[in-house]
């Protein structure tokens, strides 16, 4: 009992319980699953398209023809340009702006969930959606690539994947590349998520978050196409997104993968800092 005669303040709810509650909420949301199912369908549709059509030229998709294990890499690379960031943006929009719109952010703060813990809990929620999205696309790509397209013809003892450099990779080597690109994609999405959460912390309209991310991607695309702005290009997170295809080269050129990861870390840090500052001060 303290001087006010109150029972001693209870210990804060454990992290496990907090994150469990957040994840249950994220995964109960119908749109989360709708988006994830749509994403999972993309590699399968790609596999069908590749089986049914001639080998395309001048497209990363050409790598997948008769070379099924490249499908997860190509699918992640193509989805990273728009759909994956949008899925993360939707999760981030619901996480703060959506909760604010429904008045439930207030409830969390009054519980009380501390503001710093709230940021952590929301970040984990968005990260889990991103990881699920990347994981499902990767697994669906692997499954569809292996079952519907298969490895390169006349599979040798250790030839599961034909690289763009004309070498073959063993199954474990191919898997390593696939895991590498999945992890790299997740880092890029985490950066997008941090920025989207920062926007989400500034508004109570989820659509503002969505349009900011979509608008940002379009703006970056436009900026990239203007040669006069070349000094700016290394700073745009989208510039490094072509590096996904680098895992299909042999040896893997680490340069752009590392550079894009560092740029993503920068976005992550700035987005995270803005998010934290705003969440500590914002009204709910």
């Amino acid at each position: 009992m303290n001087r006010t005669g109150a029972p001693t303040a209870p210990r804060p709810v454990s992290w496990g319980r907090l994150l469990g509650a957040e994840l249950r909420w994220v995964l109960r949301r119908p749109r989360t699953w709708l988006m994830l199912v749509l994403l999972t369908a993309v590699p399968v549709l790609m596999a069908i398209g590749i089986v049914l059509s001639d080998r395309p030229r001048r497209s990363l998709l050409a790598e997948v023809t008769g070379n099924g294990l490249t499908l997860p890499v190509v699918a992640l690379s193509i989805l990273l340009t728009l759909l994956l960031p949008l899925v993360v943006a939707v999760a981030a929009a619901d996480a703060i702006a959506g909760e604010s719109q429904h008045g439930t952010l207030r409830g969390l703060l009054l519980a009380p969930v501390g503001r710093v813990r709230l940021v952590a809990m929301k970040s984990v929620g968005v990260l889990v959606v991103a990881a699920l999205a990347v994981g499902l696309v990767t697994v669906a790509g692997l499954a569809a690539g292996w079952l519907m397209i298969g490895p390169p013809a006349v599979l040798g003892a250790d030839g599961a994947l034909l690289t763009m450099s004309g070498t073959t990779l063993s199954p474990s080597g191919a898997l390593y590349r696939i895991v590498l690109v999945a992890a790299w994609t997740l880092v890029q999405l985490a950066a997008v998520g941090a920025v989207a959460l920062a926007v989400s912390a500034w508004t109570e309209h989820p659509l503002v978050v969505l349009s900011s991310v979509l608008g940002g991607l379009i703006l970056f695309g436009v900026l990239t196409s203007i040669p006069a702005l070349e000094p700016l290009h290394p700073w745009l997170i989208t510039t490094g997104w072509g590096a996904a295809a680098d895992v299909l080269r042999d040896p893997v050129p680490a340069g752009e993968l590392v550079r894009s990861t560092l740029v993503a870390a920068g976005y992550l840090a700035v987005g995270g800092a803005v998010l934290m500052v705003r969440m500590v001060r914002r009204d709910a």
Partner: peptide, 17 residues
């Protein structure tokens, strides 16, 4: 953090999903 566990509040209408 110490005070709010002992406070119940219904502010600005009920907020639920």
């Amino acid at each position: 953090p110490a005070a709010l566990p002992d406070v119940g509040a219904l502010v600005e209408g009920p907020g639920f999903h």
